[in-house]
Computed example of a mutant assay.
Amino acid sequence: MNDNQSILSIAKRTLEIESKAISNLIDLLDDQFAHAVQHILESQGRVVVSGVGKSAIVASKIVATLNSTGTPAIFMHAADAIHGDLGTIQEDDVVICLSKSGNTPEIKALLPLIKIGKNKLVGITGNMDSLLAKQADFVLNTFVEKEACPNNLAPTTSTSAQMAMGDALAICLLELKGFSSADFAKYHPGGALGKKLYLRVADIVVNNEKPQVDINTSVKDVIVEISSKMLGVTAVMDDKKVVGIVTDGDIRRMLSKYDNISGLTAKDIMTSNPKSVDVDTLAINALKMLQEKSISQLLAFEGDSYAGVVHIHNLINEGIL
């Protein structure tokens, strides 16, 4: 049985080889890359990304990254393209072909068909003497010295280089388009990531009870209001205006301070100038406020009107925390 040190040594060697190859791509970037980005940016069509084998898998990932960052893209398997899927490519589309060797039979068969359609072709290849490099309008060089595989056979380093080049392409397009976090949210509405980008306090408080008592409400009824609304807090109102807040903590402090609470009202135990947040505030920013102030709830306002309560448990349940 191999010991842990041997296993870790193999893993470290693999990562060192791949990280060095990706770092070397920096020196391989040239005006061809810049021109490819500029052409895609100005194109009225989509980006069609194609490859075979492991390159096809990388192509699918590049498509996903482009789509999620505001550049419409679609995957087309090179083998399927020459057997009926060539119609995927529309008039104004830009085609990206990935191939380590640049001489893969399916890619070689596809190249003249792309030329017939007069679509611009971006080649991502590690072989600058290949047919793909010679036929492409723009060539992105992803040359690697060797695969991480000890037999120099299994696509490892080469596919990492392709993926990194695809990321560089996507991020250039993202920044040049001015693609913002708000734009990103439109493409990622689900899950915690999307919620951090679009979920607002208003979306949370609408599902909560709206605890409130009058300034002269007895302590007993204040406790009932806090307990029934299950948010650990209630707003204290005076003529429809919030003048304070009573929390579970205020109740505990009151019980330790007074032997007789029968004559006490909300006014006697409330905290004035409660911490608050506007309903249009992003939920993630409301969470930051709660964390910075080491509190569990914020009163939410729509303008000057009391809208409800946002509790840290709401944010946990939404996956924000």
Results as ranks from 00 to 15, higher is better:
I89D: 00
P211F: 07
L287Q: 13
S50T: 09
I116V: 14
I245M: 15
L111S: 01
Q38H: 13
G232I: 04
D93S: 00
L86T: 07
G263N: 15
D27Q: 13
T69F: 11
A136P: 00
G84Q: 05
A266V: 07
V206F: 10
D268E: 14
G84S: 04
D183E: 10
A64I: 07
L176I: 03
P274R: 14
I320C: 05
A202Q: 13
S68T: 08
T217R: 14
T156C: 03
Q135V: 12
A202R: 11
I116F: 11
N152M: 11
A78V: 05
G84H: 05
P112R: 08
G126M: 01
H313W: 08
C172A: 08
G249Q: 05
N208P: 02
S101F: 10
D239A: 15
H313L: 08
A266N: 06
N127Y: 13
L41I: 04
N103E: 15
A64Q: 05
L193K: 14
L174E: 02
D137V: 04
K115C: 02
I295V: 14
I62L: 02
A109G: 12
T217S: 15
T71Y: 01
A34Y: 11
I62H: 00
I40V: 07
A148D: 05
A64L: 01
M237H: 05
A78F: 08
Q32E: 11
E302M: 09
Y258A: 04
E147L: 01
Q291H: 14
